[in-house]
């Protein structure tokens, strides 16, 4: 049976508050904060991207996994903001951790669920005994167009998982996917910013797919919300994961440990995976954890994990997700615009 052998997260130190963005565009900050349940978001420095964050998150995952990186047989990075259009982010990651050259490598893309895709595929390869260990990363430095609602949430972060066979820190009890063609959010070739379908991104997109996936996987394992210690949903803002959790019958106490978006923002492919790393930071042996990702376009991957005794041995050997979240430096909109290359420079 496949399991998570090691896990790690990483996020930039820069933060920008909702008030700072709203001030520039003449928007009403309190209504954004109340409506989206967002306070601030992470912002990458000019020298940080999906590749650098993936490497740092993976260093933490390998510290917890305590394995020889050369035994990793697959490196998959899921993102919608890969630095290269052609050249896999995973090539740099695999080289940086010493996993080359006998390793399969690919970049995945499925809006915000590219990271859970990487996890899903690694688990299948481990279960089929094609590889001993696989590395699955979800990372993004996504952008929202200036003044668009997405600008208040599009953030940066990464989560990395070493997937292998037992014993790990969490056994994979079940996986499940729920996917349809739903054009709620997209970015065409050569376009800098994504487009979205406004309120259509809610009920027929996020809520339908997360509900469908959560109900489907719980039926598969014959479990109910009360059987789980924790649940993690994709977090495009602060409001949606709390709302979908309530609709499914989960309590705030089950959701809150992995609910990072109010002070982190939406880290896209890193979102639910980082929620999982934060949850593993506090989980106890024997706890059951449900994770359901969501990627626009649209689909959800569901995972049921059972936390093992090893969590207590490795939890504190690398930085915790909320420990990283607490290290921050606030920046103004001008610095944010410079860092995110929203200013047209001379040629």
């Amino acid at each position: 049976m496949a399991g998570i052998i090691g896990y790690g997260a990483y996020m930039p130190r820069n933060r920008i508050k909702v008030e700072e963005i709203a001030k520039v565009w003449g928007a009403d900050a309190p209504s954004y904060k109340r409506g989206l349940m967002l306070q601030e978001k992470s912002v990458p420095s000019p020298d940080q991207d999906v590749i650098t964050m993936s490497v740092e998150a993976t260093k933490h995952a390998l510290t917890r996994a305590e394995i020889d990186p050369s035994k990793i047989g697959a490196v998959y990075v899921g993102s919608e903001s890969h630095p290269y259009a052609v050249k896999p982010s995973g090539t740099v990651l695999a080289e940086a951790i010493g996993a080359t050259p006998e390793v399969h490598c690919a970049d995945f893309e499925f809006a915000c669920k590219a990271g859970s895709e990487a996890m899903f595929v690694c688990m299948g390869l481990v279960d089929s005994e094609k590889i001993e260990y696989g590395l699955a990363v979800g990372a993004d430095t996504s952008q929202g167009a200036p003044s668009d609602a997405l600008e208040y949430s599009a953030a940066a972060g990464a989560a990395s998982f070493v997937i292998g066979r037992d014993p790990g820190v969490a056994k994979v009890i079940e996986t499940y996917s729920f996917m349809t063609d739903t054009p709620d959010f997209w970015r065409r070739s050569y376009m800098h910013y994504p487009r979205h379908a406004g309120r259509f991104t809610g009920e027929p997109a996020y809520f339908k797919h997360i509900m469908g996936c959560a109900k489907g996987i719980m039926a598969k394992v014959k479990m109910e919300p009360k059987d789980f210690a924790y649940v993690v949903f994709h977090q495009p803002n602060g409001k949606f994961p709390q709302r979908v959790g309530k609709m499914l019958g989960f309590t705030k106490e089950q959701i809150d440990p992995g609910w990072l978006s109010p002070t982190l923002g939406n880290t896209y492919s890193g979102s639910s995976p980082m929620g999982l790393t934060a949850t593993l930071d506090v989980a106890k042996p024997g706890d059951m954890v449900l994770m359901v990702s969501y990627g626009s376009g649209a689909g959800s991957d569901g995972f049921v994990f059972e936390v093992t005794d090893r969590i207590d041995e490795v939890r504190n050997v690398a930085p915790g997700t909320r420990e990283l979240l607490d290290k921050k430096t606030y920046i103004e909109y001008g610095t944010y615009a410079k860092y995110r290359r929203k200013i047209r420079m001379g040629e």
């Binding site: 000019p46 020298d47 940080q48 991207d49 590749i51 650098t52 490497v55 740092e56 260093k59 630095p83 290269y84 740099v92 940086a96």
Partner: peptide, 16 residues
């Protein structure tokens, strides 16, 4: 930490 050191212009390689 692993960071991007420089970019070879708009279309060149990224140096880490």
């Amino acid at each position: 930490e692993f960071r991007k050191i420089r970019e070879e212009g708009e279309a060149g390689i990224l140096c880490y």
